[in-house]
């Protein structure tokens, strides 16, 4: 499989602060790759380096096998980009901005086809192109960048928290567009701090923390690292059997329900025990990305005093 994005030990320092501290990131052709981390983890900095807008202080980054800093303009022929916080020209209308960006990307050479693509996108995103840039809300500025990105086909989409400011309805429209470009074979790097979004859309995920990748893999691989929660209605005398079961952790009996967790690759092993107890109201919850995320950031939350340790 072709590697589209590859960084090895990528570093970026701004004066004394270190934004990226040896980031490894690999994105293969055709995949939708979630790039997950809270604000300030280094997601935008990475994307700016991949776009050749910022230069790495150390390590290496390649895009389609080329250096994003020296070959920026050439690489941009193949890239669609949506910034996290879209600024527009105050005295250009949204429609003018979309046309300008599409023409600069070379996507408007076939005018009729481009007009049709633009029209369709403006309709699905319910976008009014006649207002001046300064009059748009954050969500509408975001739509300008999204429409401009999707109106011109690209091999790679770099999307930096693209749904910020969009309402849930528009998020669904966005998800459909991602599915559409992925079906056409495009590669997508989707940076986000919204776990459910990444979980819903992405094939592979990289979790970034303080400028380093702390976890990377397919959703299935990452789930191996977490535990599945099992819960059922409590009946007296069940505790001993659960305690005796290999692989069961964190037993809690609360509000008349038994809850415990089990390593995700060992769920099958506890099924005989559950059958033996003849449990009622059984639920088995697969691990969410949320847990995965909290596993890496839980200590931070704990020191902030906002969440108990799990």
């Amino acid at each position: 499989m072709n590697t589209v994005i590859s960084t090895r030990g990528l570093q970026k320092r701004f004066g004394r602060t270190t934004a990226l501290d040896g980031l490894d990131l690999t994105v293969d052709a055709g995949e939708i790759h979630g790039f997950l981390g809270p604000n300030g983890a280094g997601k935008s900095t990475t994307i700016r380096i991949l776009l050749g807008l910022a230069r790495a202080s150390g390590g290496e980054a390649t895009l389609f096998g080329s250096d994003p800093w020296t070959d920026a303009a050439e690489l941009h022929r193949r890239i669609g980009y949506v910034p996290g916080d879209v600024s527009l020209w105050p005295n250009l209308t949204g429609g003018e901005a979309i046309d300008l960006l599409s023409r600069l990307r070379g996507g408007a050479t076939d005018e009729a086809a481009y007009a049709a693509r633009k029209q369709r996108l403006m309709e699905v995103f319910q976008f009014d192109p006649r207002k001046k840039g300064r009059a748009y809300s954050k969500g509408n500025r975001q739509k300008v960048a999204l429409i401009a990105a999707f109106a011109t086909p690209a091999d790679l989409y770099l999307l930096d928290e693209p749904t910020s400011g969009l309402d849930p309805l528009m998020e669904q429209v966005f998800n459909r567009e991602i599915d559409r470009v992925a079906a056409d074979g495009a590669t997508v790097l989707l940076s986000s701090h919204i776990l459910s979004e990444v979980e819903e859309l992405c094939d592979r995920v990289t979790i970034i923390r303080e400028g380093k990748a702390v976890e990377s893999g397919t959703m299935a691989e990452l789930r191996h690292l977490t535990r599945t929660e099992i819960a059922f209605v409590h009946q007296p005398g069940q505790e001993a059997a659960i305690d005796a079961t290999d692989g069961a952790h964190d037993l809690v009996i609360d509000s008349g329900r038994v809850r415990f967790t089990v390593d995700s690759d060992r769920v099958a092993g506890v099924l005989p025990m559950l059958a033996g107890l003849d449990v009622q109201g059984l639920t088995v919850s697969p691990p969410s990305l949320e847990e995965l995320f909290l596993r890496h950031y839980g200590d931070e939350l704990a020191t902030l005093g906002q969440a108990p340790r799990s």
């Binding site: 920026a72 941009h76 022929r77 910034p83 916080d85 600024s87 960006l101 600069l104």
Partner: peptide
């Protein structure tokens, strides 16, 4: 500063040009 140069430079326009 406004961030609109970035939109242009993320297309096929080189910085020097």
């Amino acid at each position: 500063v406004h961030g609109t140069a970035e939109l242009v430079l993320a297309t096929r326009v080189p910085r020097v040009r």
